[in-house]
Design a protein around this nucleic acid. Structure first.
Lengths: 372, 372
DNA sequence: AAAATTGAATTGTACGTACAATTAGTTTGT
DNA sequence: ACAAACTAATTGTACGTACAATTCAATTTT
């Protein structure tokens, strides 16, 4: 107690305990304290250092030393490592691993831990996972919504996240009822450029395949329709095939076979919900002895490695994948830190919308070439 | 991280985590550390100061600085959820997502949380991750070894896991120096049946491509050689192509092109390290206008979805994937529970070896068919 | 042989200096 | 009026010195 730094320390602590400082109020600077107590800066720093360690103060380079807001202190334990939960629909589905990887690498480099959860596209699982996250100490959540096209019965859990001050962001899609910060791509435009590409190549009979339990599929379908409108090409309702996740391996293939067997109005172009589906449909075309792109053109979506795995390299739409994962990680870390420092700086975080980009490979061709 | 005191701090922390010190063992004195790191005493004191604050060390005036005995540490966490760490080389590489998925679904069903880490096949990252696992409360670890064909410099961290009573198991491969419980497939046999299949179809000039920085590749190569021995077919040394992860996109393709350009002894069969490589090689064959399987047969490995994505569905070797992930999860949960109950029942846990199985599709053909 | 003393090693307190990095507000320039 | 540049204040890192306090073992004294 008779050490100088201890004198300083106790004096400051007394002031805090006596309520001399509001939460987050700035205390005297090190220079002022030196004069006040007639000690060296070193001594002041040691005193403050201990108070910081004990959680009474926090320092901010450039601005000063501040009194901790101890009303929040209790809820968040500071010694354990920060952790971010990532919730996806399918861990193993082809583009999510890339997203997860992008996020994982950024988070682990920045000292965060990644907790991984998968809903398998089941709302019940989503509920279970959200409960688990709420009941532990998780610092932030990155979510890829399950069945985003439908009303979400777990919406209360999301509100509860907000109430408990756990920041969350959504990727790929979002629930309409919430207005979360999210990272998505402009799926409507994506569907548009897929279709436009074919139209500009002279195609008029274009079939679109869309998975409609996710909002992405619905938006891409909108884009498909918009493109037709813009170029004043009538849409044959039979040319829009929508399907659910559970049907993805059967319905689109079956429907395509029916369309190809028709005597008239055989389609010349296919717009696919994603590359995975495009590959499935390629099998059908091969069976029917139709050559791509000579007989029929096909456009994928996502620009996954699948697009380059097939014999005909797919024309497709680029998905940010890694970049999106990394950006999501960056954003959530930002939000978590803002949360912790009680920085009410009102820096507005906004939804990031990625612009789709067409990657032209070998699976599409001008229809006129065929006829000349 | 670039500050001097942080360098010193991390270096000391690494030593502790690597198990260089017994509990309560004295570490170097401040004077020694000054010389070791060529920094001032002040810097050493700051570094040690933080480690003391974080609970890694304690100081005793007059005698020295000592390593904390972390085994007493709160007698393991009681209230929080159990968590299992999964460390893979590449999160997004094509078969790991399946393994992770299998493990994740079992673990989350059983109330465990999954912490995901990726080494990106870099030993330094593995070290960082192991340090992170040791410095938090993790209950069990599932590891896919990085660069398993080489000696592992992080072996001390694994010993430290054992000392701290954190069970771990390895999948796909293992480090020779440790004798861990692991889940692997019989890769030698896998390479054998790949090759045998071609030999039985009359092939005599078979090229094998093996990634040799993982133990799997080396074993598969052994199998390839064994098959040749058994059927008394001489091996042309040029027909064994080994490559490292970094070269996977270039070397095998280049080597194949050279072999195909030869005037004599053009190979009729290709044994590939995995399906991914097989697809790359298919591109080369397509460029050379060689038809699969008529002109040349090709066998993949893993039976991933890639095997069915290409125009010629691949003959390949089945990898347990999901099943392996699930079994790993089951095993680690068992070990954790045994740990917790102090059940010294000596139930012996043993390495599980999966038998490879050939999946015959369309990429291989009897060589005699071609000549008749 | 036991006790007291000494001394070396080690951490603790305290002073000083210097410059870097960051922040926030002020001034300047367009 | 707005953006850019500057400036002062503040904390962060890093060097140095000096001496105090404590511990432990070796030495000396009793």
């Amino acid at each position: 107690m008779q050490t100088k730094y201890n004198t300083v320390k106790q004096a400051i602590k007394s002031q805090i305990l006596a309520g001399a400082y509001e939460p987050n109020q700035k205390i005297s600077s090190e220079n002022e304290l030196m004069k006040e107590f007639s000690v060296s800066r070193h001594t002041v720093r040691v005193a403050i250092g201990e108070l910081v360690n004990e959680g009474w103060l926090y320092r901010e380079q450039g601005s000063g030393t501040f009194c901790t807001d101890r009303s929040i202190q209790e809820s968040r334990n500071q010694q354990s490592k920060k952790s971010i939960a990532i919730i996806t629909t399918y861990i193993s589905d082809y583009i999510f691993p890339s997203i997860i990887r992008g996020a994982e690498s950024y988070l682990s480099e920045n000292g965060y831990q990644v907790n991984l959860y998968s809903t398998n596209n089941d709302i019940e699982n989503e509920k279970r996972i959200l409960e688990s996250i709420l009941s532990q100490q998780t610092d932030g959540v990155i979510i890829e919504p399950t069945k985003s096209a439908f009303t979400n019965p777990n919406i209360n859990y999301y509100f509860n996240l907000e109430r408990t001050n756990i920041p969350y962001i959504m990727i790929n899609a979002f629930y309409d009822e919430l207005e979360p910060i999210c990272l998505i791509m402009d799926d409507e435009k994506g569907g548009f450029i897929q279709t436009e590409h074919l139209i500009k190549h002279g195609h008029k009979n274009i079939v679109g395949f869309f998975k409609t339990d996710d909002i992405q599929g619905i938006k891409r379908m909108k884009g498909y329709i918009k493109a037709h409108r813009k170029y004043q090409i009538p849409i044959n309702p039979k040319n829009i095939i929508s399907y659910y996740s559970e049907e993805k391996r059967t319905k689109p293939k079956d429907e395509l076979e029916i369309l190809l067997s028709a005597q008239t109005d055989v389609p010349t172009g296919l717009v696919c919900y994603n590359d995975e589906l495009a590959l499935l449909l390629l099998d059908v075309l091969r069976d029917k002895n139709l050559k791509v792109p000579n007989d029929i053109s096909i456009v994928g979506y996502d620009d996954s490695f699948l697009a380059e795995a097939s014999e005909v390299k797919l024309t497709t739409v680029k998905h940010p994948k890694n970049k999106m994962g990394e950006a999501a990680a960056e954003l959530i870390v930002d939000l978590v830190q803002k949360n912790n420092q009680n920085n009410k700086d009102n820096k507005e975080y906004e939804t990031i919308i990625y612009d789709p980009e067409l990657v032209i490979r070998k699976s599409t061709k001008k229809i006129s070439d065929d006829e000349t």
